[in-house]
Simulated assay, not measured.
Amino acid sequence: MSTRAGNAGSRTLAFVESPVQLLNVLEWAHAHTPASGAGQLTLVVLSPVDPMTRGQLRRMAGLARQEGHEVRWEEARGGATAPFRTVGGLTGPLRRADRVVIGDPFSRYVQLLLTLTRAAELVVVDDGTATMEFVGQLARAERLVRWHRKGGRPGPRDLLFAPVSASARRRLTPVEGGERRVAVFSAMPIPDVPDGVTVTANDFAWTRARFGPPRITKGADLVGTSLVETGVVDGDRYVDAVRGLAKAHGATRYFAHRRESSEKLHRLAVETGLQIVRPDLPLELIARRGPVGRTVLSFPSTVVHTLPLALAGTGVRVAVCDVDPEWLTRHASPRARGFLSGVTGSARDVHRLSALAAG
């Protein structure tokens, strides 16, 4: 399905697979209008299968249309032949694009599409904490591997896809003389910037202009994470930590991450008494729209960097609870502990809580 608006001949193509990526493309377009001519773009949604993610993407796509962008919805995972149809239908637009914006450089789908473009400018917008790892790997000329998988041995699919991944990494490497420009638009701290890569700060100006200010309640809200689902944190330890945080800070609501399982959320509701909320938009928009607690509690995740920006000037305090090393599963990669600590330690304008407080 494609809905056209604005300039149908746009030479900027943006590929997103999650609601947060789509939000950050809107932030990028807002920040780059009108100086770079990035105001209107063709936004391609490579739709996932997960119903919660699809629902949030539908709502975010509606906001994108309201901003005057063209939205092209691709059922990219709708059966065995879907990837062939999707790639075939996008080959022409990719060849014509002057600028390609992507939300997840680790995505195999995106990596495959990058091999088809001749665009002189590539822009990476935030896909959460993964952006920090991507820039570091690019600077060290390493293969692109998600942080929670790093340290494990490549599987058969990884080896099969390795040439495509290597080609995508080369495409994401700047070429001197402006032949290929690479930019990163991020709210995350990026200390080691690769040579030739331009980094622009995302301060969530579009979100603050479009929503709020929110009504602030007296209590605390707790933000969920998918660290259990990704195999990093033990489920029992996580439930204990949530219970401890809720009791210590008087939290009454738990904003679920879109990847959290229904089974885990049911257990949290029963064992902690928290009201489980499944947001219909990214949390930055939900919090800005309100109501929101005077304190927002989170484990190490993207929101400890983005919420202080989205809620700037509201008086809401964002607090992050460290992940105790004892909470990690035996399957967690060797990189996980240091990465999570780095996410917390590099966050600005947040209050840091000891993991013991979650006991």
Rank of each mutant, 00 (worst) to 15 (best):
His331Tyr: 10
Ala120Gly: 15
Gly128Arg: 01
Gly55Thr: 14
Arg352Val: 13
His257Met: 05
Val123Ile: 09
Arg267Trp: 01
Pro194Ile: 07
Thr117Tyr: 06
Gly338Asn: 10
Pro48Glu: 05
Arg352Leu: 11
Thr329Gln: 08
Thr272Lys: 00
Thr200Cys: 03
Phe339Thr: 04
Leu160Glu: 10
Thr81Tyr: 10
Tyr109Cys: 09
Thr217Met: 07
Thr12Tyr: 05
Leu63Arg: 11
Leu222Met: 06
Ser262Val: 15
Val239Asp: 04
Ala162Ser: 14
Asn202Phe: 01
Gly250Gln: 08
Leu283Asp: 04
Ala139Phe: 03
Ser36Met: 10
Ser165Gln: 14
Val343Lys: 01
Pro189Leu: 13
Leu138Glu: 00
Arg59His: 10
Val303Thr: 14
Pro174Thr: 11
Lys218Leu: 14
Ser18Gly: 13
Pro308Ser: 09
Ala82Glu: 06
Ala8Tyr: 09
Gly136Ile: 01
Ala201His: 13
Arg288Tyr: 06
His249Thr: 13
Ala287Thr: 12
Arg99Glu: 15
Phe161Thr: 08
Gly359Gln: 12
Val20Tyr: 15
Leu122Thr: 06
Val320Gly: 01
Arg169Ser: 15
Leu46Asn: 03
Gln137Lys: 09
Thr272Ser: 04
Ala336Leu: 03
Glu229Trp: 02
Asp192Ile: 08
Asp104Lys: 02
Leu268Asn: 01
Ala35Asp: 15
Ala357His: 10
Gly250Tyr: 09
Gly103Gln: 01
Gly212Ser: 10
Ser354Gly: 15
Glu326Asn: 11
Phe106Lys: 03
Ala80Asn: 09
Val164His: 05
Pro154Ala: 04
Gly55Pro: 10
Gln275Asn: 13
Arg54Thr: 14
Ala269Leu: 05
Leu172Glu: 04
Val323Tyr: 01
Lys150Gly: 03
Leu307Asp: 05
Val110Ile: 14
Val320Phe: 02
Leu353Lys: 04
Arg288Thr: 07
Leu57Arg: 03
Leu138Asp: 00
Tyr109Arg: 11
Pro300Val: 07
Val25Met: 06
Val303Ser: 12
Lys218Glu: 15
Arg243Glu: 11
Arg208Met: 07
Glu271Gly: 09
Ala38His: 14
Asp195Tyr: 08
His351Thr: 15
Leu227Phe: 10
His30Arg: 13
Asp104Ala: 07
Val100Phe: 07
Ala166Pro: 07
Pro191Thr: 11
Val318Met: 02
Leu23Ser: 08
Ser226His: 12
Arg85Ile: 05
Pro48Met: 07
Gly342Trp: 03
Ile190Ala: 02
Tyr254Asn: 04
Arg317Ala: 13
Ala38Ser: 15
Trp206Pro: 00
Trp73Tyr: 11
Asp126Gln: 03
Pro174Lys: 08
Ala130Thr: 15
Ala119Gly: 06
Asn202Met: 02
Ala166Gln: 12
Arg59Tyr: 01
Gln40Arg: 14
Glu70Leu: 09
Gln66Arg: 14
Val71Trp: 01
Ala355Thr: 06
Gly212Leu: 08
Val101Thr: 01
Thr33Leu: 05
Gly244Ala: 07
Asp221Arg: 00
Gly359Val: 12
Ser165Val: 11
Ser10Arg: 12
